Simulated assay, not measured.
Amino acid sequence: MYYSLTQIENELKKRLPYPYIWGRKQNDSFDKQTNFIYSIQQFDTLLTEIKKNFEKYSNYDDIFNYALNRWYNFWSANAVEQIFCSFPNVKPAHNSKDRLIDFSIEGASFDHKTSVFPKKYNLPIDEAIKQTPELIKWFYKNQSQQQRKHLKNRLFIVLYSPDGEHWKLKAEISWLKKIIDHYMIGFNPNYLMKFSLEKNKTIISDIIWAVKK
C-alpha cells in the first residue's frame, strides 16, 4: 500500500517533542500489547489509543513510551522501504509480514534496518565510516533479540547527528530520500560486503551512512 511520504514525515515529527525512552529492551510481551501501532498512522490517534487501552495500568508510562517508539520506528521504516521500492530494480517482499525480507535489489533479498549510531561502539563516527565492515559485524552481534534476531542479508541505514539526537533523523524522510536515491543510483551489487558469521553460510550487507552536517 502506498502512503504519502510527506504525510508520514509530518506525523513522525509530531512525536519529536516527547523524550525517546524505552525503559526496557524490546520484548515479545510488550510487542503483542502494542501491535495496534501498525494500523495507526496519525500521531494524535495513537495517543488516544494508548490512553484508552492502558490508562489504568500501573506501568502506563512504560507502555506509553514503548508504543510511541514502536510506532515511530515502524512508520519511518515503512517510508524508507517505500523509497527503495520506487526504484525499478527493487521488488517488495511477496509477503508483507515477512520479518526477514523487506525487499530485493537485483534479486538479492534484504531486511532493511535504520539504526542510530550506537553509543557503545568503540570508534568515533569518522573512524567507523572508514571501517564500515566492523560496524556491520557489531550490529549483527549486538542488535535485535528474541523474534527479531537473525543472521540474514541486511541493508543498514546508520543515522548520526552531531548533537547526539540521532533518533530524530528517522523523521527526516525527505532528507533520507535524497541519501537513498544517491545510493541507489550508484548501486552496484559487486560492492556489497560479504560476511561468514555462521558456519557454511555467507550473508551480504552494506551501510548507507546518513550523517547530518
Rank of each mutant, 00 (worst) to 15 (best):
residue 2 Y to K: 13
residue 6 T to Q: 13
residue 6 T to N: 15
residue 11 E to I: 01
residue 13 K to H: 04
residue 15 R to Y: 04
residue 16 L to N: 05
residue 16 L to T: 07
residue 16 L to A: 02
residue 16 L to H: 02
residue 21 I to F: 08
residue 23 G to P: 03
residue 23 G to E: 10
residue 23 G to I: 13
residue 27 N to Q: 06
residue 28 D to Q: 14
residue 28 D to A: 12
residue 29 S to A: 13
residue 32 K to F: 05
residue 34 T to G: 09
residue 36 F to D: 03
residue 39 S to Y: 12
residue 50 I to M: 01
residue 51 K to V: 06
residue 52 K to E: 11
residue 54 F to H: 06
residue 57 Y to K: 10
residue 59 N to G: 02
residue 59 N to M: 08
residue 65 N to I: 13
residue 68 L to T: 08
residue 70 R to P: 00
residue 72 Y to I: 04
residue 75 W to H: 15
residue 77 A to Q: 07
residue 78 N to D: 05
residue 87 F to I: 10
residue 88 P to T: 15
residue 91 K to D: 06
residue 91 K to G: 00
residue 97 K to L: 11
residue 98 D to H: 13
residue 100 L to C: 04
residue 105 I to Q: 04
residue 105 I to P: 02
residue 109 S to R: 13
residue 118 P to G: 02
residue 118 P to W: 05
residue 122 N to F: 11
residue 123 L to N: 04
residue 123 L to R: 12
residue 128 A to F: 06
residue 138 W to V: 07
residue 150 H to G: 11
residue 152 K to C: 11
residue 152 K to V: 14
residue 153 N to V: 09
residue 155 L to Y: 04
residue 157 I to Y: 05
residue 159 L to S: 01
residue 159 L to T: 02
residue 159 L to K: 03
residue 162 P to S: 10
residue 162 P to E: 14
residue 163 D to H: 15
residue 165 E to M: 11
residue 172 E to D: 11
residue 172 E to W: 06
residue 175 W to S: 04
residue 178 K to W: 08
residue 180 I to E: 01
residue 182 H to S: 12
residue 183 Y to R: 11
residue 184 M to Y: 09
residue 187 F to R: 01
residue 188 N to R: 14
residue 192 L to P: 03
residue 195 F to D: 00
residue 196 S to H: 13
residue 197 L to I: 09
residue 198 E to L: 15
residue 201 K to D: 03
residue 205 S to Q: 10
residue 208 I to E: 02
residue 211 V to D: 08
residue 211 V to G: 10
